[in-house]
Amino acid sequence: MKQRLRSGVPVLVFVLLLALLWEAATAWLSIPHYIIPQLSDVLMSMWDNRQLLGKHFMITLGESLLGLSISVVFGTLAAVCIEGSSLARKTIYPLIIASQTIPIIALSPIMVMWFGYEIWSKVAVVILFTFFPIAVNTSDGFRTADSGIGEVMRSMGARRRDLFLKWKIPSALPGFFTGLKMAATISVGGATLGEWLGGEAGLGMYTKRASSMLRGDAVFSGVLLLSLMGILLFLAALWLEKAALSRRSS
């Protein structure tokens, strides 16, 4: 633990240096506040609006988590279907892979059209973003399960259920967590986009509105908080992965 804390020191120092550089450069080079506001102004604006920002933060976080949870359920189910039925493998799987070439952002307005300006349109956009990484990576996890283990189990008279529970599921966990980490990171982006397209609350809406008013300090405080949210969700997924796979080899 101590070792790990110490290994984090260089990057923290570097971030601090960058922050100082930001603060100093904006002051010395007299960059307009609507291009890059001074860091101290951003932090001050953040502090002044802490209650409002807190409220918007929780709304965006809620949308991200809700969408993410639904994607976990349906993405995993899709992966199980693909694994369990060769028909699904021949029909659903290629479609899922092909759908990754579609610019998902382009589909987002449809979600707004269908689900309106309530929370569900944002959740739908989050699902659009997060379903595929979870479904595809979990499915790959199933597919790359060590076939030798399956053969040993079959030679011992294992039933389909045994094979699935004792071999396939544990084998797919690393893939699932890879997908979850990817999904956690981009879920915030999905929620933000959903709010841009039509939202009355959330940090995405906040930054968009601030941007149209050329309020650099407010835009940057929103962006910093959204970044923080992405990092936190990723770390949470990472922590879950560590807890679940702690005793396996990497």
Partner: peptide, 25 residues
């Protein structure tokens, strides 16, 4: 073949594959 719906109750063999194929978890 063990794919059959009913499970073979006896007459099973102990199969040791080339690679150890142990469960890492």
């Amino acid at each position: 073949p063990s794919g059959a719906a009913h499970r073979r109750q006896s007459g099973r063999i102990g199969y040791m594959p080339q690679r150890d194929s142990l469960m890492p978890w």
